[in-house]
């Protein structure tokens, strides 16, 4: 099944390169570790046979688009495709310079969840394959089946693939993701059940682990500032030292900067080396944006960016 999709993708990309429809392709190839993929950025037709599609295509490849010149073909999952639209809205890339190859996914597998389920590290797990609606994980000499909710990334659980737009080509069928909207909101509700002071304590503890590697910012397609506010020195908004207070301010201000741009692709949470549950923040921001503005990031390339637009009479109930 996957093989067939991969063949279709490779054939299509090869043709696009041959015809000169695109100058280069940004896709996924097998990574050097178990259950990993790595971005493949190439203009060489010979590399096309390395392209893969599987449940481990975690990266949001649209992060590379601003740096690539010429016409770029890009393999995009639903959330990535929305990031691309968002970049077009923000005039970071031009629609004509990008050829979107939609690769609908059934959600990516969260290896951190697999590690928790198996009690092993990812390289000690033997195999992970989909068997119908269940993920079959082989480890320690036996195979166990887990539901989609248990193994899919949290960001995928609330995903609505129906707003997959602006694709120049579609490889595979758009299918609803197992899970449903409410599942993705579980962690938000859990957090909101806590008292405010408890929530603050929670985040204080989480952000005290932050090492300020800025991985979250670097993998985020919505974080496209040439100069991030944390690098400003006149005035210096926050300390460059990894104090929890400044770590927290960095992250919440980043969240506000990406409000209406963030498609909740889940990359920041996945790559955080300090395991800070950033998905709880991106999900909440998505919810706030939806509640206040009935807006969903990256669904209309012609709409003005959320924070650049306004309605004359809105939000007055929040003002004093």
């Amino acid at each position: 099944m996957t093989r067939e999709i991969e063949k279709k993708l490779r054939d299509a990309v090869r043709e696009l390169l041959e015809k000169g429809t695109i100058d280069r392709i940004v896709g996924y190839e097998a990574g050097s570790l178990k259950f990993s993929t790595t971005p493949l950025i190439t203009s060489n037709k010979a590399d096309v046979d390395r392209l893969v599609i599987n449940p481990f295509t975690h990266s949001n490849l649209s992060v590379f688009l601003r740096d690539l010149c010429g016409k770029v073909g890009i393999v995009a999952k639903g959330c990535d495709a929305r990031s691309i639209i968002s970049l077009i809205q923000d005039r970071q890339i031009a629609r004509k310079d990008v050829f979107v190859i939609g690769a609908p996914c059934g959600g990516v597998i969260d290896l951190a969840k697999v590690e928790k389920l198996t009690g092993l590290d990812r390289d000690e797990v033997d195999d992970i394959v989909w068997q119908g609606e269940k993920a079959a994980i082989t480890f320690a000499g036996s195979t166990q089946k887990f539901s989609a909710k248990e193994v899919l990334a949290d960001s995928c659980l609330g995903c609505d693939p129906s707003d997959f737009k602006e694709c120049d080509m579609l490889i595979g069928e758009i299918e609803p993701i197992v899970g449903g909207k409410e599942l993705g909101q579980d962690r938000i509700r859990e957090m909101e059940a806590m008292a405010p002071a408890q929530r603050w304590e929670f985040w204080k503890k989480e952000f005290s682990r932050c090492i300020r590697c800025y991985g979250c910012r670097q993998v985020c397609p919505a974080c496209f500032c040439d100069r991030c506010f944390v690098e400003e020195t006149e005035p210096r908004w926050i300390s460059p030292l990894p104090k929890w207070q400044d770590n927290l301010i960095f992250q919440v201000v980043r969240m506000m900067h990406v409000a209406g741009r963030c498609t909740n692709c889940g990359e920041c949470e996945r790559i955080c080396p300090a395991n800070i549950p950033l998905g709880s923040l991106t999900k909440k921001m998505e919810e706030i944006v939806d509640e206040l503005f009935q807006y969903r990031a990256g669904t209309d390339k012609d709409a003005p960016p959320l924070m650049a637009a306004y309605q004359p009479d809105e939000l007055e109930d929040l003002m004093r």
């Binding site: 950025i41 590379f64 590697c213 800025y214 670097q218 993998v219 080396p273």
Partner: peptide, 22 residues
Amino acid sequence: AKCVSCGICTFLCPTCYCFDIN
């Protein structure tokens, strides 16, 4: 090309020792 220029590899490298002074 695929490097995203974050600090994970160096911060978590046991032999990377660069520091800044503030």
